[in-house]
Amino acid sequence: MIGASLGRIGAVAVFLLRVLGQCPAALAKPRAVIHQIYNAGARSLIIIMLCGLFVGMVLGLQGFDLLQRFGSEDALGVAAALGLLKELGPVVTALLFAGRAGTALTSEIGLMRATDQLTAMEMMAVDPLRHVIAPRFLGGVIAMPLLVAIFDIVGLFGAQLIGVQLMAVDPGAFWSQMQAAVELDDVNEGIVKSLCFGFACSLIAVYEGYHAPPTAQGVGLATTRTVVVSSVLVLLIDYMLTAAFLGR
């Protein structure tokens, strides 16, 4: 059991190194990468914005209710901004990414394997790691921070909508307190997290797809594993990064 897990981690690490080795070559032909940024990013945009709006609105409601008990509902902007920037933005976006883009990547690559497309590439003396895996990996890594930033902005808008429009928090206090309390380090924490999550989710998705057994059941299981492993990994990395940032 332990041996198998270790072997798996080792296999993922070796796979990561092989993919990273192909990334410069993939970047040299950016068209495929652009295509994958579109697939992973632009196509997830609607769901990211929708969820960001609702998460922000919930933050507005809950935050207002909580802060009101201490008579400091003016700090709603701070609470919403920090909550979104540091935690909810990166984590919720990463979980949605795993469910939306990650599964699509895994099943696509798995089906390419099952229908011999990857083998055909190898037979054409074309390395599928370079032409299939690396662009998809890079697309995910690039798309994630952008998605997180959009999620944050829409979330802030949602919180503002509830707090200022519905609960009548003073808009000046909302924004000025937020601007006074949020530091560049807080924003950076969110960006670092989103980069790490993008890295992890994309890696898991392409790894599972690339190594999926070439059957319908195999691809299905691999897709499920992508969601499960990505989600657990995101929360684990989130804890470690949060601890590291607070420890500074």
């Binding site: 940024i37 579109y38 990013g41 632009a42 945009l45 901004a81 920037l85 798309a143 921070p145 952008l146 998605l147 930033a149 959009i150 944050d152 902005i153 937020m178 601007q179 949020v182 530091e183 560049l184 807080d186 924003v187 969110g190 960006i191």
Partner: peptide, 17 residues
Amino acid sequence: FVLLGFAALFFLTTQLP
């Protein structure tokens, strides 16, 4: 998408703090 993403990033890094 990329434009929107970078605009959002820019806003977060320059306007919020």
